[in-house]
Design a binder for these strands. Structure first.
Lengths: 210, 210
DNA sequence: GCGTGTGAACTCATTCACAGCT
DNA sequence: AGCTGTGAATGAGTTCACACGC
């Protein structure tokens, strides 16, 4: 009976986190799984089970302490632990939206590069970051010690970009193209082991082997 | 042994569709589940099983006819046979990206309104559509016979907006806020029964009861 | 009484493995 | 030989239901 944590549980943690934040602002001290259930549309049993994987945080007859639970989940999600250097590859609508999303900074992600194939875009700035030529990917990643790459490019090029990123020494890839990236020619990528929610988007963080 | 189709199968259909489109452009006539498997990182058994739910489309020893399979999946995802009137609520980064995404038109979605709370945004235009005051939501939805609402607003207001949309007679809600919207005070919403992928974003289409 | 924590039951989703068609 | 279609087996994720603590 050992605890293997479902991917879906991790995804839901961030949903809980957001709502606990709201609850805190509303001044609630305790919240029961049933009340959370009604607020979020997730079953109460589900919520208890999700938390169960990580320990015992509730008080019988009272529920969960909003502040503490929030802290616990933040720690579980590893938010604010370190700062991460990030590159965004592909500056279409999605890439632009991501690049100008302030939430990244708050969560410890620092965007140090935006890359695109389109020469017309190269040189422009988004949110203070210059758009650079994708051909320089390798040097940029290496020189700026970028450890996370966000792929917001079309499916057709996603795998190639992923390979290039891995060769440049990247550690994690957040892939928005709807394919599961896979290893090719000896390059070793581990697929999806974490997902999170930011502004209603589902992030799938697939990190390479250490 | 009757066929109850997994939600995840439906999600994957759109992934297959995109790739079939690429394959067609590459000039491929037939594709086997194994080849698709390698291109997409989904197991071959999975692909055969997914298609199995809907019928027999393959030829033993040959694979699937790219063109036909594409048509079949398009029909299966069918929803987009008609034109739908759409409103986008919340014109932040995400809302903006959606409003200017051309793929909608191709798929039969016609954006007839963009709404926001921010008075500064009201009056501007995105992709030809004027941003209007969210307070007029009801009249706008009713007058323009809008049947789909896309919520790209923060979680905190998502449920309120959803309720308002339902009162205005909307039929479907595509919700980008990471909560499962639920019925309140007699308003009847059915949750998520379809999801699709567009430009790497996951759409969850939750449609109300007819 | 209320509400957690949790084994056990169940439902949903994926993979195995192979008979049968081309 | 190559590849589909599919029952059966396995695995993942969710819900039930209730003993126990506040």
């Amino acid at each position: 009976m050992n605890k293997k944590i479902p991917k879906s549980t991790v995804t839901r943690l961030s949903i809980y986190l957001r709502d606990l934040d709201n609850l805190e602002k509303e001044g609630a001290r305790y919240v029961s799984s049933l009340e959370l259930s009604r607020r979020l549309g997730v079953s109460d049993a589900q919520i208890r089970r999700d938390l169960w994987y990580f320990g015992q945080f509730g008080r019988s007859g009272m529920g969960y302490h909003v502040g503490s639970l929030k802290d616990i989940i933040m720690k579980l999600l590893g938010i604010n632990q370190k700062r991460w250097h990030v590159a965004i590859i592909g500056v279409g609508n999605l890439g632009k939206a991501l690049a100008s999303y302030k939430g990244f900074a708050e969560r410890g992600f620092e965007i140090l590069a935006c890359l695109d194939v389109d020469k017309n875009k190269v040189g422009r700035r988004i949110n203070g970051v210059k758009i650079e030529d994708i051909n320089n990917l390798r040097q940029i990643i290496e020189k700026r010690k970028i450890k996370i790459g966000i792929i917001a490019a079309p499916v057709s090029s996603a795998q190639t970009i992923a390979d290039e990123l891995v060769k440049s020494g990247i550690r994690s890839i957040i892939n928005f193209a709807p394919i599961k990236l896979h290893a090719q020619k000896g390059v070793d990528i581990r697929n999806v082991d974490l997902s999170m929610e930011l502004e209603g988007l589902s992030f799938y963080l697939s990190r390479s082997n250490a």
